[in-house]
């Protein structure tokens, strides 16, 4: 380097290090004090206000019916997200299809399911028996081979799944569509020039890349789904919220029981957030040159004598004031 930079000549020695008086930030101090006071008030209230009924909260937390509700909520969330995502991908591909009928049908579906409240849709599926007494398989407008009573075919669980999944598909369709549109046209052309079919191009080339755009909002959708699944309590499906409602309708400890349910919801969304982090990481392969270390990897590096060697190249994100500098 020095042989090319002849113009700069003379000193290669670094001049004196700058030691300056840092700028004062009185605002930060005031904000800290205000927030600490508010926090203290909140903690004080949590402890001293008996209406929170913490004893009842912890008793309720692991009651059998609550645990059943938790399992049902998880089942419902997973199932509806999977169905919603599959439906969303299909709708998105239809929407972008050169076939005008498919595109139009997809548009109509999204318009309808995004345009009406989720709660109404769930109620609708819950009372579908009032609209169609029977459901049958047969020739359109002709004879039917098998006929079912709608009320027995569409159970409360099925109604809950239909309500949540069909609605979710409409939102996922827009997310997937945005993801697909974010991929450069050149990728499709390269795949086509290799002789790939449109379907294979979508499945092997476009969608895997679109995932990077699709995953973060899908994580949000999953968290929304977990909480929106509480709406199915209106059709008496035993999810977490409905289980809580059954309990407080008996013991009248409304607030403590709802707190217990909230703790479960918070716990589950926290799990989902962690899951989302790892899925995002997986799909960023090839996008980032070097994947940043996971928090666990960083912790492990820190514990295994990482404190003395700031040269450990994996620690790219500074963690608080503890690190090297």
């Amino acid at each position: 380097m020095s042989d090319t930079a002849t113009g700069l000549s003379s000193t290669t020695r670094q001049p004196e290090e700058i030691v300056a008086v840092p700028v004062r930030h009185p605002g930060r101090w005031i904000a800290t004090v205000v927030i600490l006071i508010l926090l203290a008030m909140l903690v004080h209230s949590l402890i001293s206000n008996d209406n929170f009924g913490w004893g009842t909260v912890f008793d309720t937390l692991f009651q059998n019916s609550i645990l059943t509700g938790v399992v049902h909520t998880i089942e419902l969330t997973v199932l509806c997200m999977v169905l919603g995502t599959i439906g969303g991908v299909i709708l998105a591909v239809m929407r972008l299809s050169p076939n005008p009928i498919l595109s139009w049908v997809s548009w109509l579906y999204i318009w309808f399911f995004r345009g009406t409240p989720l709660l109404v849709q769930i109620l609708f599926w819950g009372y579908i028996g009032a609209l169609f007494k029977t459901v049958g398989l047969g020739i359109p407008f002709g004879p039917q081979f098998v006929t079912f009573q709608t009320q027995s075919l569409i159970t409360v669980f099925l109604a809950a799944v239909l309500g949540l999944a069909l609605n979710e598909a409409a939102y996922m369709a827009e997310i997937v569509r945005a993801g697909i549109l974010s991929i450069d046209q050149g990728q499709t052309e390269a795949a086509q020039s290799l002789g790939m079919s449109a379907l294979m191009t979508m499945r092997r080339i476009v969608l895997p890349q679109a995932m990077r755009v699709i995953i973060p909002p899908t994580g949000n959708e999953t968290i929304s789904m977990l909480k929106n699944s509480a709406l199915v309590s209106v059709i008496a499906y035993l999810d977490l919220l409905y289980a809580a409602q059954l309990i407080y309708s008996r013991n009248y400890q409304t607030i403590p029981v709802l707190l217990a349910a909230s703790i479960w919801y918070l716990f589950l969304t926290s799990l989902l957030t962690i899951g989302q982090y790892y899925i995002e990481r997986h799909y960023s392969r090839g996008a980032a040159r070097e994947l940043p270390a996971t928090p666990i990897q960083r912790l492990r590096a820190l514990l295994s004598g990482g404190g003395t060697t700031p040269a450990a190249d994996t620690t790219t994100l500074g963690h608080g004031g503890g690190g090297g500098q």
Binding site: D184, A191, G195, A287
Partner: peptide, 29 residues
């Protein structure tokens, strides 16, 4: 698509599949 298999194309902006390794790009088709 079948006919395109017999014609290789190289693009100005490479259009490599970024989610696959070099070998992955080559063996995919």
């Amino acid at each position: 698509a079948a006919k395109r298999r017999e014609i290789g194309m190289v693009f100005q902006h490479f259009n490599l599949f970024p989610h696959m390794t070099a070998l992955g790009n080559v063996v995919e088709a």
